[in-house]
């Protein structure tokens, strides 16, 4: 029934066409909050990817058992369980990262991306496409956070992954690591993605 081609399509759409923060504008809170460095962004992205993958698999597996009226509540409880697992794993294995991310790891519970994928995709599709969907969206989300973190770290600290790459002449732009910088970078990236997509559709049309 499901051929490889459509599985590849489910995976690919999360990487560009539906890339979560920029195209769907979902999951904005972590996108803005934890991206003051590349490593924080990647850690947050991977934690979200894990929760998304587990949630999509479970929701897809139980989609015929759960009654329609209570499905949202059931999904939220499932997601909260997986987030607890991710949070405890981070706290045990990578204490500094867990500390830097702080309350934003538990806040994955209310990250709209996960509920949106469970509600919009996994509950209507079998397990394999749901896995591909979760991987695509999750990796797209991780990449977006890494890009945001890259821009903010290079201008805010003059470094990448804590390695100094700018010379002494470089005066760090403090605004980039402040909350305001997060809003600016995000706003300009959304505009950039809009611009690229518009040019592409125009060339297709003419």
């Amino acid at each position: 029934m499901v051929n490889n081609n459509s599985l590849w399509h489910e995976f690919k759409k999360g990487l560009w066409q539906d890339i979560p923060p920029f195209r769907l504008v979902l999951g904005t809170c972590p996108t803005l909050a934890v991206t003051n460095s590349v490593i924080n962004g990647i850690a947050m992205g991977l934690a979200t990817l894990f929760v998304l993958l587990c949630a999509n698999i479970t929701v897809s597996a139980i989609r015929k058992i759960v009654p329609g009226q209570v499905r949202i509540a059931a999904y939220v409880v499932l997601i909260a369980l997986y987030v607890t697992v991710a949070d405890m794993f981070l706290a045990a294995m990578f204490p500094p990262i867990s500390k830097a991310l702080g309350p934003y790891v538990p806040l994955i519970v209310v990250n709209c991306i996960i509920l949106a994928r469970a509600e919009g995709f996994a509950q209507k599709n079998p397990i394999m496409p749901s896995i591909m969907d979760a991987l695509g969206i999750g990796i797209g989300f991780t990449l977006s956070l890494a890009v945001m973190g890259f821009i903010r770290e290079i201008f805010g600290f003059g470094s990448i992954l804590d390695i100094k790459i700018m010379g002494n002449w470089f005066e760090p732009w403090i605004v980039m690591i402040l909350p305001a910088g997060a809003f600016f970078v995000f706003g300009f990236l959304v505009a950039l993605v809009n611009y690229i997509l518009r040019r592409k559709t125009e060339t297709v049309c003419h």
């Binding site: 504008v25 605004v175 402040l178 909350p179 305001a180 910088g181 997060a182 809003f183 600016f184 995000f186 706003g187 300009f188 959304v190 505009a191 950039l192 809009n194 611009y195 518009r198």
Partner: peptide, 22 residues
């Protein structure tokens, strides 16, 4: 400008508000 319309300009305004709130 067309590419900034919608979410984009709202985020940039939010950035300015964040600066003001500092």
């Amino acid at each position: 400008p067309e590419v900034f319309q919608g979410v984009s300009i709202t985020l940039i305004i939010a950035g300015m508000m964040a600066l003001a709130f500092m």
